[in-house]
Design a protein around this nucleic acid. Structure first.
Length: 367
DNA sequence: AAAACGTGGCA
DNA sequence: TTGCCAAGTTT
């Protein structure tokens, strides 16, 4: 393998600077063991799953809620999936929560509650990929692993001034990462965490604070004063906008029609309000509720729209309200009625929380 | 291998 | 307001 220019400096010096900085400035995080203490594998795993593609502030309250509700992997394994999804609501990427539960069951029932101690075996578990497997090995077991997350990619892209855009540059970045992690030994747990803290506090995506960076000496981008240019990323497609309908169907007894989404759809397994299939490309298809089937006592009224952005499209949902005599309702298997007062405890994903908010404010207005 | 998969914060 | 971004995995 051809050596990159970043190999030319001494890896030991680089690691030493990073670890010295970490010793002084490391963050206290709910899932992180205090200095000198061992991390709890369950906490490491849970936090790593939660942190995928999101931020520390977004995760904190969820982590605390989960560790309180489910103090160990067996509690989590035994909980109904429905409860786990309810408590995950709002964190997004809901397949993560379903995989979290599947994984907990395997660890609890097959491994007797102990996480496997190799990357190979960890990667076989649902929801654990390259990054998470290496993070658990390093952080929970203090064993050597090349841990590469978005922070490490950004830091290396700047250190080595990688011109190749992500994600194509992942392979070369991984190679450089391997040299950074080389022979880390007893500090196997600290090094990846130092890089993540550095990425969070110093080598930030925007306006990196190179003046206080412990490894700026090694950084090519800093030396060229073009650190803001890295990491170079592939140009993204513009997001299309989809339009759909959602229904706030109230019975004459003041209950609301809700449903559970099937797991092969967006927001899979989550509670929802009935509507058209906005998550399908084909916007023509009628979804869970053809409103006319319910014979509302008067024409449904359009009360407004809700806008929401997903990773690959924008959504505008027209929100309709209808009052339906209870005898006209034929509930599907995944549907039920719920009192308005209980609707906040349901665990709607954010999209439907917005719809509920709009519907309730319209409620207050006209009735 | 490229696309799918959520959300909230910030410039 | 719009677009970008954050501790990736799965298919």
């Amino acid at each position: 393998m051809k050596k990159s220019h970043v190999f030319e400096w001494n890896t030991k010096d680089f690691q030493k600077e990073l670890l010295k900085w970490y010793d002084k400035y490391r963050r206290e995080l709910p899932w992180r063991a205090p200095k000198g203490r061992k991390a709890h594998p369950y906490h490491v795993w849970l936090s790593e799953i939660m942190l995928q593609q999101t931020t520390v502030p977004a995760v904190k309250s969820y982590f605390e809620k989960f560790t309180e509700l489910y103090p160990d992997i067996h509690h989590l394994a035994q909980a109904p999936e429905e409860d786990i999804l309810k408590h995950w609501a709002g964190l997004g990427y809901y397949a993560r929560a379903r995989n979290l539960h599947k994984c907990a069951k395997i660890i609890s029932e097959v491994y007797g509650g102990n996480f496997p101690k190799t990357e190979i075996d960890l990667k076989k578990l649902p929801g654990i990929g390259d990054y998470t497997a290496s993070a658990i090995i390093a952080i929970a077991f203090n064993k050597e692993a090349v841990v590469v997350d978005g922070n490490v990619e950004r830091i290396i892209a700047r250190l080595a001034r990688i011109r190749e855009p992500l994600p194509k540059s992942k392979a070369i970045i991984k190679t450089i990462a391997a040299s950074i992690y080389e022979d880390i030994g007893k500090k196997a747990s600290d090094l990846p965490q130092s890089l993540m803290d550095l990425g969070s506090m110093v080598c930030t995506p925007k306006s990196p604070k190179c003046n206080i960076c412990p490894i700026s000496y090694f950084c090519e981008a800093k030396n060229h004063k073009d650190q803001e240019k890295y990491p170079v990323k592939a140009i993204k497609e513009a997001k299309p906008t989809r339009i759909g309908d959602v229904y706030w169907i109230e019975t004459t007894k003041g209950e609301i029609l809700i449903e559970k989404r099937s797991t092969n759809r967006m927001l899979g397994g989550m509670m929802a309000l009935p509507g058209t299939d906005w998550d399908k490309n084909n916007a023509e298809s009628m979804g869970s509720s053809d409103i006319s089937l319910f014979k509302p006592d008067k024409k449904p009224s359009l009360i407004g729209e809700v806008r929401h952005s997903f990773t690959h499209f924008h959504l505008i949902l027209n929100v309709h309200k209808a009052r339906v005599p209870i005898k006209n309702l034929i509930l599907k298997e995944n549907q039920r009625l719920i009192c308005i007062k209980d609707i906040d405890e349901l665990g709607f994903p954010s999209l439907y929380k917005k719809v509920v908010k709009l519907a309730i404010s319209a409620e207050d207005k006209d009735e």
